[in-house]
């Protein structure tokens, strides 16, 4: 890996760490969700400062062309993050639905007990 490229990748890794911490400080992301991204940023830093790590890992895994191992690992991490987020979105959807229904029922009850609405017909 050339010197310029290493500097660029190092810069990207550092920016990622700074970005995640910035988001944490501004409360735009919570600590739990920031962990994945910090790990990702850390991985970039490791590979840029110690490029040999990738080559060693590739040899150990029997991969002939080391960058493909990097791609494989990156895609796996991204897929994991996406799956995790889908799980969270599903849970949130269920909770929002539950809250919406309860809120609507409470509101209806309040209108009735405050006497704003007249007694409903039994039809």
């Amino acid at each position: 890996m050339g010197g310029t490229l290493r500097v660029i990748i190092l810069f990207i890794g550092l920016s990622a760490v700074v970005a995640v911490f910035y988001l944490l400080v501004r409360r735009k992301i919570n600590e739990r969700n920031s962990l994945f991204w910090l790990c990702g940023a850390l991985a970039i830093l490791v590979f840029s400062t110690m490029p040999d790590t990738l080559d060693i890992m590739a040899v150990l895994a029997g991969v002939k062309y080391p960058p493909t191992l990097l791609f494989l690992l990156s895609i796996l991490v991204i897929m994991f993050i996406l799956l995790y987020q889908s799980i969270q979105i599903s849970a949130l959807q269920e909770k929002v639905k539950e809250l919406t229904q309860r809120l609507a029922i409470e509101q209806m009850d309040r209108v009735r007990t405050e006497g704003e609405g007249e007694e409903y017909d039994r039809i």
Binding site: K97, A104, I105, Q107, M108, Y120, I123
Partner: peptide, 27 residues
């Protein structure tokens, strides 16, 4: 028309609306 009306603040979908009705019926 003097029906009771349970109004959801936004569109939940057919199943979500029905389930709101079931909750009301239970209460």
């Amino acid at each position: 028309e003097k029906a009771r009306v349970l109004s959801l603040p936004f569109n939940l979908g057919y199943g979500g609306a029905l389930q709101a009705g079931f909750k009301y019926a239970v209460l």
